[in-house]
Design a protein around this nucleic acid. Structure first.
Lengths: 201, 201
DNA sequence: TATTGTTTTCAGAAGATTTTGAAAACAATG
DNA sequence: CATTGTTTTCAAAATCTTCTGAAAACAATA
């Protein structure tokens, strides 16, 4: 496969975009950490997403210059996250992979997975801790109890919110849209510093 | 998940909670990755948050069994994130540190910081890539262009949303509250399908 | 069944991140 | 300015994560 030509501008649309594709892959890969996925995994996803094509393991290995093992594991993980899908081609024994194209679906899949992996276990722990604290019965409300409660309430609200976003297809989008519109009314001008009296700080 | 084989209950409320404090620190530390902070940093924050007390470096070193260097760096990072504050005590040369107690403030600080560090640079890259793509002029709309656009729109919306949440004190809370209430109307009976987080695992 | 093409696995290598500890820098006081 | 207590820095060590590559497993075909 042709490496980068000396002249970054090329004739055909495909060539023209080659450089941009690389740049996108790089940017998206760097971003990986935010979503809790490794750089390579993010790059594989970037490649599949931005090209929109179905690719086999060898295509991916070649394009990203990674080992077969790494490609295999990254693809598997992306399948687990539900952001890419297997594609079969008649008369071809290889498996192909294609990225989900709707960015909202991608986002929902990631949020769903992260909440499941990170927030849910935390909530379980928090509940266990609080219940143990409470079973003493006599002293229901220490400062520590109150802080635990605060935190549980917060994360339960957050989970509920995430559930809405990741709910049935389309609702997340609608929800966000309504939020972006409605919030003006609720919050007022965002830019403006509303002269609210503040509490202790 | 071993419970307590021997009875760790002690008489005083302080002793009673010691074990729970440890558990909370552990849980919160494990959570760190989600927020993009290291385990120790999260543990330092957990300790300060759950006790609510102002502590000096030595207190923290002793409690978490970490080195002075580590404590110093973690505290500095937490200060940068804006989730703890310095406290001075008359006649004491040591510095003390105390955690922000309002969990919404903590959340806002973290979101603000992460957007700044991760999303903003991505958006810059995305814009650069698209602009370069566009400057060819002749073919304004390839599939790749369209996907880049999609992504830019998405992250700009997301940033705007995050800005609202992290905006003037209190508004994030109101916004979330309104969202949790309003979303029933907007989305319809999403809750119909029970979105329970429990599960057996 | 043997053959051939493809995917998965996983131990060890490579790489990245976090932690330590001791020295340097800093700052308050005598 | 010397002393003493405190905080910061950073090279090296420890630890954790990711990646490789070759072997094993799998699957389609003859």
């Amino acid at each position: 496969m042709g490496a980068t030509p000396d002249n970054t501008d090329a004739g055909t649309p495909d060539d023209r975009h080659e450089h941009d594709v690389e740049r996108f892959i790089e940017a998206w890969g760097r971003m990986g950490s935010v979503w809790g996925i490794s750089r390579t995994m993010a790059e594989v996803h970037a490649l599949l997403y931005i090209t929109g094509e179905a690719m086999c393991t060898d295509d991916i290995m070649a394009h990203l210059e990674i080992s077969r093992g790494n490609a295999s594991m990254s693809l598997r993980a992306l399948l687990d996250w539900g952001v890419i899908a297997r594609v079969h081609r008649r008369g071809d024994r290889k498996e192909y992979f294609q990225a989900e194209q709707d960015i909202w679906s991608i986002f929902r899949a990631i949020v769903r997975e992260r909440v499941k992996r990170e927030v849910d276990p935390l909530l379980v722990s928090l509940h266990e801790i609080r219940d143990r604290t409470r079973e003493h019965g006599d002293k229901p409300e220490t400062d520590i109890d109150r802080r635990l409660d605060q935190m549980i309430v917060f994360f339960e609200d957050a989970t509920r919110l995430a559930d809405r976003f990741t709910g049935p297809s389309g609702s997340g989008l609608k929800l966000a849209a309504s939020l972006l519109n409605a919030s003006d009314k609720v919050v007022g001008r965002v830019g403006g510093r509303s002269s609210k009296r503040k509490g202790t700080g």
